[in-house]
Design a protein around this nucleic acid. Structure first.
Lengths: 198, 198
DNA sequence: CAACAGATATGACCACGGTCAATTAAGGAG
DNA sequence: CTCCTTAATTGACCGTGGTCATATCTGTTG
C-alpha cells in the first residue's frame, strides 16, 4: 500500500541548523565571503547534506536574501499611496540600500529575479512579483499619470530602480547616490509634462 | 639605463591563437559550454598562459560578447532618427535577440555592464555607454517628448530593454516576445499622452 | 518486538577556475 | 657571439562548488 510519509522532524532540524549557521556566518563576514564548507562545519553535518537541502549555494542565498527583501516589503506595503515621486523614492530607499549592500548580493538578486522553470521560482523571484504588486497598488491610488495602467507603471519603476542600482556599481558613476538619479527617472516616468500641442 | 620594451610579437600571436580557439569553440558549442581547458588545449598553450592574457574567464567572455555587441551597434548607429517607438524597437531587436541568445550570455552582460574600477572597464561596459550615446542621438533628432533630456530618455530605453530581456528568462513570461512588451514601455516612456489638465 | 522500505546523511571524489614559483625565450648591449 | 635583463610561458597545485554510491536512521507494518 502506498504510504505518503511526512517530512521527518530530523529534516527540519537539520535544515534549521544549516540556515542558522548561514545567517550567523553572514552576520559575521557578509554574503560574499560565505563558504559552504563553513556552514556545514558550523552546523555539524556533512557537505553532501547541504546539497540534499538546497539545490546549490545560490538557492540558499536566494532564501536568505529573499527573506530580507520580504521583511522590507512587509514594512512598507501597507503605507498609503505616495503623493509624489519623492514620496515613492523615500519608501523604496531602504530596500534599494539593502540590495546594493554588496556587489555579490545585487548579482544574486539579478540572477534569481527570474526563474527558468515554474517549479524553481525562488523567494527572490516571488519578492519581485510582490514588489510590482505593492507599487502598482500605490500608483492606482495616486495622482500620477493615468494614460498607462498601474501595473505597467510599476514594472517601469522596477526597471528604473534596477538601472540606478546597477549604475551604483559602475566606476563612472560611483558616488552618485541612489536617490537623486532615481528621482529624475520616476519624475519623468510618472509625471510627464509634455505640452498638449506636441 | 631604463629601456621600455615593446610587446613581443610572440605575445600577440599567443593571444590571437587563444581568441581564435575560443571563437571556434563558441561556434561549436555556444558560450555557456566554454571551458578554459578546452581553449588552452586547442591553442596549444599551458593553462597559466591563458591567465597571463586574460584576468579571468569573464574577461575573455567580455571581449567576445563585447565585440558582437559592437558589430550590432556598427550596423545601426548611422541610421536616421526613428519616427516612432516601433521604429526604435525595430532597430534594437537584433541586438536584443543576440543578448538573449543564451541565459549565460545575458548574465555575463549584466555582470560586466558596469565595472568596479575605472581601470577595468571592459568592452561590454563600453558598448553600454555607446548604446546610450547612439539612442540619445536618435532621440535628439526625433519627435519624441522634449520635457526630458535625450540622454535621460536613452538611459530609460536601456533600462526598459534590460527589463524586457530579463522577463524573457522568467518562467511566468516565457513565450512573450521581446518586441511587444518593449513597445508598450517605450510608447509610454517616449510618447506620454496625459491630458494637460491632469 | 523484528523486519522492512523509504527518507536522510555521509564523505570520498570530481570539475573547473584560478595561482605562482620556477623555467625558458627574446632581443639589446658590449 | 655571449651575457644579461625582462617578458612570456609552464604545469603542478589549490579552493570551492557540486555529485553520488553507500551507510545509517526512522517510522510503519505484521
Amino acid at each position: 500500500m502506498v504510504m505518503e510519509r511526512p517530512v521527518q522532524k530530523r529534516t527540519l532540524e537539520t535544515r534549521a541548523r544549516l540556515i542558522a549557521a548561514a545567517e550567523a556566518a553572514v552576520a559575521r563576514t557578509g554574503f560574499e565571503a560565505l563558504r559552504v564548507e563553513e556552514i556545514v562545519l558550523a552546523a555539524g553535518v556533512a557537505k553532501g547534506t547541504f546539497f540534499a537541502h538546497f539545490k546549490d549555494k545560490d538557492a540558499l542565498m536566494d532564501l536568505l536574501i529573499g527573506s530580507r527583501i520580504d521583511a522590507h516589503l512587509d514594512a512598507i506595503e501597507t503605507a498609503p499611496a505616495p503623493r509624489s515621486p519623492e514620496d515613492l523614492v523615500d519608501r523604496l530607499m531602504p530596500l534599494m540600500t539593502f540590495m546594493t549592500c554588496e556587489r555579490y548580493v545585487f548579482d544574486v538578486i539579478l540572477r534569481r529575479s527570474g526563474a527558468a522553470a515554474i517549479e524553481d521560482i525562488g523567494p527572490i523571484a516571488r519578492t519581485f512579483e510582490r514588489y510590482v504588486r505593492v507599487v502598482s497598488t500605490w500608483i492606482a491610488g495616486s495622482t500620477f499619470r493615468r494614460d498607462v495602467p498601474p501595473d505597467i507603471l510599476a514594472e517601469g519603476v522596477q526597471a528604473f530602480a534596477i538601472q540606478v542600482m546597477a549604475l551604483r556599481f559602475c566606476a563612472l558613476h560611483v558616488g552618485d547616490g541612489l536617490r537623486e538619479p532615481l528621482l529624475t527617472f520616476l519624475d519623468a516616468w510618472l509625471c510627464p509634462r509634455v505640452r498638449p500641442s506636441d
